[in-house]
Design a protein around this nucleic acid. Structure first.
Lengths: 348, 348
DNA sequence: ATGAAAGCGCTAACAG
DNA sequence: CTGTTAGCGCTTTCAT
């Protein structure tokens, strides 16, 4: 392995000049800098991050904790974090907490001490535990993704608006009774999505009829998986709603599956809207209308926040809350509401 | 941050004893060891990996390079690597090479020097470049996943057998003309899958009719995405085959999509088999029959290999090649071959 | 069995 | 602008 000493010897300067030439180019004469840089390249010198960090107090590393890497949602966030971090010169320690709040806590704590900062995506811990975890963060910084907490910078998608978009879309298709198949009670986004739906449902429609014209029925906590949607389908159908908004794309897929099995056509008889707009939405049949956001951009924004705080050093900027726009992507799973009583019976 | 010094002071011993008590328990008196351990826990001491590695020459870190984190295949491998590495006390640097061979090379090289070892999943580089990259690996170890190369330990799925299973399955359903919609020409697994299909096609059927009873038609390189399958569908149909084996699940989904759009029923008119058995296979409609392997186990096995080599130190064990079993998961996309001429015309 | 001391590779004062 | 000198936190001889 080639070290600063090798480069120093080969270019006839001291090791500190090598270090400076490579990390603070402005502090060394142009000629020297150029020579050192060239020699370093020739020798294939690569600074040892661990050593650099040990002395400088930084590690050049960021941590990322996600609940489940196999979930496309987090895969995208991870990709965004990874990519932006690399561009900023940081390596990324990725940890999969396997949906366990305890592991999440332990791993986050460990990362906070071994990295310059950590991105915590959709933490499963409750507010109290989270506050305790991130409370006395000294030199390391933490940024939340898809979750907000007092005093902690965060990047979230504008789910409230997104949910409203979904409801307005259904309203414009003539749906007057919409059911929401919700996710885990502890889910922060679930709360936001409900909020948005309620607000949009109680607001006047575009038609300006003066009073709310859409009934919103909210269903309880279902598992955020295909199985959850499958389980919820009969209940949803029983409400007499002509449209369903699902907690996420997977739930939507489960809903569609069960509805079809019962002979209910989507979108002919019932429209279904998903959330997150992961590639699952495009794969499903029919392809799902879904509310999504650019998840890689979310991850990248989180890194930006982190890097900004690190660069700021002592004088921390005020706690920033980035809200990324959401958009409704209309695909084949939503269509005009069928007039009441017009629904076809079970087929097949 | 609490360091060895703090623990040493609080427990009345020297820092070297603390270090030993925590890393080589056998070298210190039971009583001392216990006290130090307890104090360390009370103080919430967490060893600084960078510092430990600097002196000891290890980093306690593994690297993982994948072509695309959003690809469910690699998401699973990553999960397996992450999980096993953690269990073995290693952190994992994850790098997404974004399908670019150049970045792959650069990142791998960087990781090789900053970590104790790296797992290289499905490298896109050709044999030559790969050999150059991994050739003079000094102290760091490298393990390949889903790829083999002389002198480098690897973990691969038994795609040859898997492909044969798929073909036998189709044969048993009465299919006598099967088309393979292949992936990128540079893909190592593509070659193995073709091999397996050819071998099975040219072998006698279960019926022991003495001569090959299945025609295998191989189609050229298609993009390993849904779009690739969509593009290949018409060509595949034109061969007169009653069954299609796709390079992977995504391609299979694209095939099904286009076939259906043309009024060809799956599996009624044509059977389709995917590869990898990612969750895409379960989400598709109909759910895909697919050849898969436990990808998390693949990732875990790669870490095992790496850790074993690291533990071995000087006397490196011989180059191991782990071949993980594949299995055929039969779902709704395959069915009995329809008698010739019986295929229904375009519907809908 | 334990302590003292010497660095791992690098950066950050501190002097020139 | 550049060289010298201390260490960062830890492991590991080398003594004892």
């Amino acid at each position: 392995v080639v070290t600063v000493h090798d480069v120093a010897r080969a270019s006839g300067v001291s090791i500190s000049t090598v270090s400076r030439a490579l990390t603070s180019p402005l502090l060394v004469a142009a000629a020297t800098r150029e020579r050192v840089t060239r020699v370093a390249a020739e020798l294939g010198y690569r600074p040892n991050r661990a050593a650099a960090g040990l002395r400088a107090g930084r590690t050049g590393t960021l941590g990322l904790v996600v609940p489940d890497l196999e979930n496309p949602y987090f895969a995208s966030v991870t990709k965004g974090v990874q990519s932006r971090a690399r561009a900023a010169g940081f390596g990324v320690f990725v940890v999969d907490a396997e949906e366990e709040p305890d592991r999440e806590g332990v791993e986050t704590r460990a990362l906070l001490e071994q990295t310059d900062g950590v991105v915590l995506a959709s933490p499963r811990a409750d507010d109290e535990a989270l506050a305790a975890l991130l409370g006395g963060v000294p030199r390391s910084a933490a940024v939340l993704v898809n979750r907000e907490l007092d005093g902690v910078p965060s990047v979230v998608a504008d789910d409230v608006t997104g949910a409203a978009l979904a409801l307005d879309h259904l309203r414009s298709l003539g749906h007057r009774r919409v059911v929401y198949v919700g996710g885990p009670a502890t889910s922060w986004s679930d709360r936001r999505r409900r909020e948005g739906l309620r607000a949009a449902a109680s607001a006047e429609g575009r038609g300006g009829r003066g009073a709310s014209d859409v009934d919103l029925v909210e269903l309880g906590a279902f598992r955020p998986q295909v199985a959850g949607g499958y389980s919820a389908a009969d209940l949803a159908l029983g409400t007499g709603a002509t449209a369903v908004v699902a907690y996420n794309d997977l739930v939507a897929v489960g809903l569609v599956e069960r509805l079809r099995a019962r002979g209910v056509d989507v979108p002919g008889d019932v429209s279904v809207v998903g959330f997150d707009d992961t590639f699952v939405a495009t794969l499903a049949s029919p392809p799902l209308t879904s509310v999504g956001t650019d998840l890689r951009a979310v991850g990248a924004a989180a890194v930006d926040l982190l890097v900004a705080r690190l660069a700021a050093g002592g004088e921390q900027p005020e706690v920033e809350r980035v809200v990324r726009p959401t958009e409704l992507v209309v695909r084949g799973s939503t269509g005009p509401a069928r007039a009441v009583g017009q629904r076809a019976g079970a087929r097949r």
